[in-house]
Nucleic acid binder design. Sequence first.
DNA 1: TTAGTCTTTTTTGTATGCAATCTTCGTTGT
DNA 2: ACAACGAAGATTGCATACAAAAAAGACTAA
Lengths: 230, 230
Amino acid sequence: MDAIPANASKVVQTATARVHDVVKQRILNGHYQADEYLRETSVANELNVSRTPVREALRELVSEGWLEAIPHRGSRVVAWTAKDAREVFELRLVLEPLAVRLASTQISKPCFTYLETLATQMESLTEEVNTNAESRNGIASLNHEFHRTLILASNNQRLANLLENVVRTSVIHRNFGNYDLANLRRSMRHHREILEAIAAGSPEWAENVMRAHLLAAQALHVPHTNTPSG
Amino acid sequence: MDAIPANASKVVQTATARVHDVVKQRILNGHYQADEYLRETSVANELNVSRTPVREALRELVSEGWLEAIPHRGSRVVAWTAKDAREVFELRLVLEPLAVRLASTQISKPCFTYLETLATQMESLTEEVNTNAESRNGIASLNHEFHRTLILASNNQRLANLLENVVRTSVIHRNFGNYDLANLRRSMRHHREILEAIAAGSPEWAENVMRAHLLAAQALHVPHTNTPSG
DNA sequence: TTAGTCTTTTTTGTATGCAATCTTCGTTGT
DNA sequence: ACAACGAAGATTGCATACAAAAAAGACTAA
């Protein structure tokens, strides 16, 4: 709940931090594309700073996995392959259930209430999905907030950091575009069931619903039709 | 197996890379202690470079979790608390079994043979533990290599990176000092059993032995005597 | 035409100087 | 005595200049 950014008191951020945020945003929204080299002087000119803070920001983004650096050649946006998607999913499938299990035993009352609010809002938007064009975007951002809140409630800062980096890198390619109403409703039902499991004091239940939740989502992105017949 | 460092071809590394390695080493061996501030000019003078490469190296180490940076105040070595130990262990307990499970299905023959060699060498050293003073150190480094090799065989680069960072930060405080011969033998038996499970084509078996392996190690560091009686 | 080599240009890597900020410590007023 | 204030010193943040390396292009020779 009370997730206070480390530098909340200080409104002024350093130039390096600004460059870091702007470049990350531009990678996310596609302004910088895969395999594109980021020239230090170009970025510096665009943002009206010198090369020094740009270099420092790029180095951070390399450590976080957004860029890859080749000595004496520069930094470029990492390309997203099928192998990357697989790797991230394998990790999410163990890390996020872990987060839910841990959160189950130590979540605070207000945090739980907040999750219920998010779930309710998402359920409302789900029923509007055929009439409201913006519905899917709303669900996507509420969904992200739901998962993020749950992860923070795990009381494991490293786990939260890992998931933040891992999931954010993949979020570029993820939305609710290929969810029909039935799939959306199941997804919402999962959220609600996770909360029920937590309320019932069963970490294992919560953990397994989360796994089902992720696997159901995966199945939509990688269809593997296997309709039993006969 | 064929784990080639990214810059193996280039013998010359940049000053930044050198500073990075040296400072990391000094954190590991205790030359820089917990909560100690690293002054950019001091480090620069000690290593005969200017502040620029030092700043860049420190920023990388911050991203990797070795240091923490406070704007306009500097970077200091992160202190290791009981909570940190708990967080890392929670992560290891899901990540390393995952690595073994993945490795089980796709490990190469030479890689498997290499693991058997390592296991054999460790078993030999184990029986010398009461006569050879250097035995424990040898086991520790072979053990690290065993786990590292297994993780790389998972064919999930992100997972390998995560574990490298997560485990390395905790390795400062870990050795085989409090293992008696019985515990050492069980640990060796675990290694061997993991290989047997892989050879038998059972990822679940391998995965669960790894979990037992980690939990047994944990029990030694956090004794929780609960001898059943009556 | 093409492979190879030298030159030019571009880009990254490092050093240094100065500005901004924080810390320390002495001073003053109550 | 002690809190508030302020100046001096220390330290990080940023800009700029130059060096080193790599890439691109031009020229030559086969």
